[in-house]
Simulated scan of single mutants.
Amino acid sequence: MTIPAFGLGTFRLKDDIVIASVKTALELGYRAVDTAQIYDNEAAVGQAIEESGVARNELFITTKIWIENLSKDKLIPSLKESLSKLRTDYVDLTLIHWPSPNDAVPVAEFMQALLEAKKEGLTRQIGVSNFTIDLMQQAVDAIGVEHIATNQIELSPYLQNGKVVNWAREHDIHVTSYMTLAYGKALKDEVIGGIAQKHNATPAQVILAWAIKLGYAVIPSSTKRENLQSNLHAQTLTLDKEDMAAIAALDCNDRLVSPEGLAPDWD
């Protein structure tokens, strides 16, 4: 099973706003939806999916286990609660959202619990998010690399995360990019604007096409129908070597997501 290259993110979207976003996206042809326990929108996402009428077997649903639920006695019950909210018997992918702060729950404990959830059929695939090289190695040591479907990390033209990406690639761990548009900051970049003009595309399409060409899965979010529609066209936009080199040169290690008390020691 592969991770879809293109999906819908739902971070910071709640209630009627997330319901509208998910329904519109599914209507436009999106088939992958990414949520998380801490987003407090799983129930709304589940409602939107059910009301969309799209068959469950056509969808790829991802959720993420919050840090309070990482211990072996809490992880599976919390995932079952997520399934109930999402109105489904299983999710396609379950990620550890953040590593346990100060290693309060060891990596081996939560990865083995997550693998057990997979064996029980609660999730088709499992993976990690916001993991450094050291944490990925610990996860591999705990359950074997063949069980780790992806590492979902912040990745944008301004934070290209080369060390983590290269290690993941060498170990056949797929990379999912979040915050790909750098909170919209990269949409105003002159270099990206020039590439967009050259291809008669939008800056968002250029950035998403760049990430897809590098082999990453992307999960942009939007509440606007025209943006949801437009973003889809990134999948058919082909950037040339010059475009890719120009975007590569924008890397400046500009990390936007590093919550105090939660973030690991980044590579």
Rank of each mutant, 00 (worst) to 15 (best):
F131Y: 14
L187K: 07
W266E: 13
K163I: 06
T88L: 04
P4E: 09
R56T: 09
D254L: 03
A217Y: 08
I143N: 01
Y39K: 01
P259V: 04
I49S: 00
I247E: 11
N102L: 07
A117D: 09
L122S: 04
K224Y: 13
A142E: 03
E109M: 01
F60H: 13
K118G: 06
L262H: 04
L93K: 07
G127Y: 04
Y39I: 06
N57K: 13
S21F: 08
L83E: 07
V140T: 13
V105F: 01
D16I: 00
F11V: 01
G9T: 05
I19R: 13
D189K: 06
I133M: 11
A113G: 09
I133A: 11
S230K: 04
A234C: 13
M111W: 00
I148E: 15
L93E: 05
L239W: 02
E51N: 09
A25K: 04
A117H: 07
A234P: 05
P77V: 03
K118Y: 01
G184S: 06
T180Y: 04
L155V: 05
N166P: 05
I96W: 03
A182L: 02
S21K: 03
H174Q: 14
K80P: 02
V175K: 00
A186S: 14
L262C: 09
M244G: 09
V165M: 07
A36R: 02
V257S: 11
Y183E: 15
K241L: 12
V91R: 05
E170L: 13
K213L: 11
H97W: 00
I219A: 15
R124I: 01
G193A: 04
S21E: 00
H233E: 15
E120V: 00
G9E: 06
G9I: 02
S177I: 02
Y216K: 02
E170C: 10
A55Q: 10
A44E: 15
W210M: 12
L228Y: 00
G127M: 04
G29D: 11
W167D: 09
K188I: 00
R255Y: 12
M179Q: 06
L13H: 08
I65Y: 07
A44D: 15
N102I: 00
G184V: 06
D40W: 03
A209N: 13
D73G: 13
I212T: 14
Q152N: 07
A36K: 04
Y178M: 03
H171M: 08
I76D: 12
K23N: 11
W266D: 14
E51A: 15
S221V: 05
A32I: 06
Q197C: 10
K213E: 15
D16K: 10
T150A: 15
R56W: 08
Q125S: 11
N57E: 15
K23C: 07
L181R: 01
R56E: 12
Q205V: 12
P259N: 03
L114G: 03
D267M: 13
A139I: 06
Y90A: 10
V145W: 07
N227D: 01
A217E: 11
Y30N: 11
E242W: 07
L83F: 02
S84F: 00
K118C: 06
I133H: 09
L187V: 08
S71L: 04
